[in-house]
Amino acid sequence: MNNRLKVLRAEHDWSQADLAARLGVSRQTVNALETGRYDPSLPLAFKIAAVFGQPIEAIFSA
């Protein structure tokens, strides 16, 4: 699965640690998400969408 997490995070000028704190996960998890090595659960995907104020499909693609 591909995602635009890194781009969106850069647009908000957040570090991985900033985003991790907003999502309630570790920085390692944010890194794994950004590199596409870990696919989030549906609840986490919804949380990511809420944090960036965008629909899930605008962030994740198959």
């Binding site: 309630g24 996960v25 570790s26 390692q28 998890t29 794994a32 998400l33 870990y38 989030p40 659960s41 986490l44």
Partner: peptide, 8 residues
């Protein structure tokens, strides 16, 4: 207490 990736 740990996040979902760590649980996984």
């Amino acid at each position: 207490s740990i996040d979902e990736a760590a649980q996984e």
